[in-house]
Design a protein around this nucleic acid. Sequence first.
RNA 1: GGAGGUGUGACAGAGUGGUCGAAUGUACCGGUCUUGAAAACCGGCGUACCGCAAGGUACCGGGGGUUCGAAUCCCUCCGCCUCCGCCA
Length: 422
Amino acid sequence: MLTLTQIREERDQIINALSKRGLDVTESIDKVITLDQERRALQKELDDTLAQSNTLSRQIGELMKAGKREEAEGVKAETSGLKQKSSDLREQMQGHENSMNEILYTIPNTPSELVAAGKSEDDNEVISTHGEQIDLSDTCMPHWDLAKEKDIIDFDLGAKVTGAGFPFYKGKGAKLQRGLIRYFLEKADEAGYTEYIPPHMINSDSGFGTGQLPDKEGQMYHMQSDDLYMIPTAEVPLTNIFRDTLLNSSELPVKICGYTPCFRREAGSYGKDVRGLNRLHQFDKVEIVQISDPGNSDDALDGMVTHVKGLLEGLELPYRILRLCAGDMGFTAAITYDFEVWSAAQGRWLEVSSVSNFETFQANRLKCRYKDGEGKNKLVHTLNGSALALPRIVASLLENHQQDGDVIIPKTLVPFVGFERI
RNA sequence: GGAGGUGUGACAGAGUGGUCGAAUGUACCGGUCUUGAAAACCGGCGUACCGCAAGGUACCGGGGGUUCGAAUCCCUCCGCCUCCGCCA
């Protein structure tokens, strides 16, 4: 969330920046500013009250030591009013803080300068397009048909055992998954990302830290009896490693990665969007995460974009890069680049990666800071990106690399999967 | 899951209900000394909030309570350790 310092010092810029998301936060921001002012006044009063009672307590201690019991009792009487007063003030202050936070949780991150104003995906900017996007819808099979024919993914079996959106991968299908994961992890390793295998469930503090809670509670699977959530992305456990930490500037940038299955309820989705591998409740993904010095986070973001490009080029898939408009970005992002691959049979683009800089928005919630050159503690910038999400990659591989009824595995991938065609 | 123990600053480790934000040691930073380094010595060395500042307030795993006053007593939750049970 935005810091109070930002809100106090950059009121107009914030209101202006958020208007790009199509939001008018003037009222919220001003309410926060008022509450903050009142809170500070309350705190001053509370601190003074506590200071008084501390002084009196010290006096009582001295009097007791000196054996002047009766005088001590007299002073004790003076403190009774202070006690009530300070607990009242504390309560009021707490009330102000709660109201302030409630508002702050509803204010998304401010889009960075590069980000265009806009309301929906129609306003996203296409930055670049790579490879040939050929519409093969007449000549090649959609991935769900091909997967069935080749017997490598079983959607019906998944529906029987678990439910829709939980497919089984079998034989070469399973090997393809495993190979892709390895390919992505090895590439991340080469790029200097340290691999983690994180827990697949997280507690609510972690959900809050990266911004899934309270905003997107309904999107996560919740284990009620233990109050744990299935991770919707490895971003959550990986970034929360740095919750409540103070890093040395020499430790930055932190570059880590991890493969995990991801679980999403996707409530409300239907139709062609959920056909085949297009949208699943459980899918595999390799995620890359960076914790960066604020001065270097633009470069870090570029580095991540370049990394993802390399992955897609290795797979010989047609893709394009979008810079999301303000209104289409996630709640916590300041800037986001989406990668989409071409689905030749469906004749449409499928999102396979989202690379974002959150600047200090997550760091503020996470309380992740670093010591700068002058020894001051400042919030870090956090970034993450998919590198990559598997299902739509598989869909695109199956559709784009069809040849004489078979699927040709791209050269780069062959050593990882162990075969050349399906 | 049951029984017992334990949780203090970057780390190690004291701490009697009253001047403890916390001894001491190590690490770290600055200085003196040295041709340089080491050693030795001197000084500094937590975080957050309020305040122009002086200074004030809060924080000793989390939350709550007792008390004029809690790191210290009580309750509760969490983590860790030991033993038992169960188990891939």
